[in-house]
Design a protein around this nucleic acid. Structure first.
Length: 431
RNA sequence: UCCGCAGUAGCUCAAUGGUGGAGCAUCCGGCUGUUAACCGGAGGGUUGCAAGUUCGAAUCUUGCCUGCGGAGCCA
């Protein structure tokens, strides 16, 4: 017999059915008792009245504790008084396993306590909604690229050297070959893929060993990185805005119930339509100065700078053409001004900061060799990467989108630690 | 690594130098439509750890531990 799920109850009104789940909450007013069941797809209020149901079933109420697993049997009816709009008139209950005293009670808890119990916290309605939206975002990401002929190309997670040579990497011993590192970006491999397939995307976990202690940082996070051959900075910015529009539209369409659970103000999300405002780095610096910020041209923006810049716009804003010296070695210089890199960042509204970073890549062999030297990187480690310029180099561009920051923004969360099932942070390795 | 904040019952918090409490959770009792149900009762404490000041410390001082927020770095 196929399981019936709570989110499908509308097709089973007036039927006698079985629902399998866990006790979410229970209430009683003596002779009338309510069991609230969750089955992973929703919650269902079940009601029983003494004298109408068998006494031995009625009395099971006292032994069923929060999160006890059980089957409930009864007839489904519409009832506006019930959360979810449907109610089951109980005829029978089968207990599978009585739960021990459950630590997460239907009252407030602190984040530290809940994070220690993350494996159980995932069951509560808010976390449930967040992870369903995360799922939708990831689905929309894959859908977007798949529908446009991009090929998914997995990059290695264990790598021989830094991709960008700046961040601190997690290090491990690799047999007789010396040290290996966990990847901080699949991009360089993605460029190889773009030269083979035209347009690809890398989607995988990335790792940063920096001791970042902010609401925007995890040591392990997921990143999607498209890379397109024969594309320039403008193509890259257009791709990014169509991409973000698609993701947000998809979440609004398929996860409105979850956004409501999170009490997200969706009017802000509804404005995420292309074209996004575009400002150059220099214009962004002017915005900061107009707001009274003491900011020197040539520095990179900090978190608060990004917030101030994005506050002037009602949708994500693209900042382009950064000073080359604050950006990575592989970025192509602006032919109009060699001090600038053809880089672009997308800043999310409401202070969520940088969710996309990308650029047109340097495609000239000699210039790339020069950049590697300027950044004091070992050229031997990049010899394979230079091959991409030796053998049929073309203009190409791409970007990386941080999944957790995007989930945090769309859900309206305070901290990215709630956007991933089991966050890894500098002071948290468990559960 | 640096700066700031916090640590009291299983959980969330109160008590600011003078007898450590409340709500929730647990246990017992009551209630025929509850909505984080409600009402009555009970049990539950090395106030993060160590030292110091004081007649007296959860409260003041110092050190340590743990966590949170921010800076730097980045998505």
């Amino acid at each position: 017999m196929a399981l019936i799920y709570i989110d499908d109850l509308k097709n089973h009104i007036a039927e006698e059915i079985k629902i399998s789940g866990w006790l979410y909450n229970k209430r009683s007013s003596g002779k009338v008792r309510f069991l609230v069941i969750r089955d992973g797809t929703g919650i269902l209020q079940c009601v029983m009245v003494k004298g109408i149901i068998q006494d031995d079933v009625f009395n099971l109420f006292d032994t069923i504790t929060q999160e006890t697993s059980l089957h409930v049997f009864g007839k489904i009816k519409k009832d506006d008084r019930a959360p979810g709009g449907f109610e089951m008139e109980l005829t029978n209950i089968q207990i599978i396993a009585i739960a021990k005293e459950y630590p997460i009670t239907p009252k407030e808890h602190g984040v530290e306590f809940l994070m220690d119990l993350r494996h159980l916290w995932l069951r509560s309605s808010r976390q449930h909604a967040i992870l369903r939206i995360r799922h939708q975002i990831i689905k929309a990401i894959r859908e977007f690229f798949d529908n446009r002929g991009f090929i998914l190309m997995d990059a290695p997670i264990i790598t021989p050297a830094a991709c960008e040579g700046t961040s601190t990497l997690f290090e491990t011993d690799y047999f007789d070959l010396g040290k290996a590192y966990l990847t901080q970006s699949g991009q360089l491999y993605g460029e190889a893929g773009a030269m083979a397939h035209g347009k690809i995307y890398v989607f995988g976990p990335t790792f940063r060993a920096e001791k970042s202690k902010t609401r925007r940082h995890l040591t392990e996070f997921w990143m999607v990185e498209p890379e397109v051959a024969f594309a320039d900075l403008n193509d890259n910015m257009e791709l990014a805005e169509e991409f973000l529009e698609h993701i947000v539209t998809s979440v609004l369409k398929y996860r409105s119930a979850e956004l409501k659970t999170l009490e997200r103000n969706i009017s802000i999300l509804e404005k995420v339509k292309k074209p996004f405002p575009r400002v150059s780095y220099s214009e962004a610096v002017e915005i900061l100065k107009k707001e009274g910020i003491d900011f020197e041209w040539g520095n990179d923006f900090g978190g608060t700078d990004e917030t101030i810049i994005s506050e002037g716009f009602d949708r994500p804003v693209i900042v382009h053409r950064y000073p080359a010296k604050v950006k990575a070695f592989y970025m192509k210089r602006d032919p109009q001004n060699p001090d600038l890199a053809l880089a672009m960042d997308v800043l999310a509204p409401e202070g969520y900061g940088e969710i996309i970073g990308g650029s047109q890549r340097e495609d000239d062999f000699d210039l790339l060799v020069q950049r590697i030297k300027e950044h004091n990187l070992p050229q031997s480690a990049f010899d394979w990467y230079l091959d991409l310029r030796r053998y049929g180099s073309v203009p190409h561009a791409g970007f990386g989108l941080g999944v957790e920051r995007t989930v945090g923004w769309i859900c309206g969360l305070e901290h990215v630690r709630e956007t991933i099932p089991f966050p890894r942070m500098i002071y948290r390795l468990t559960p």
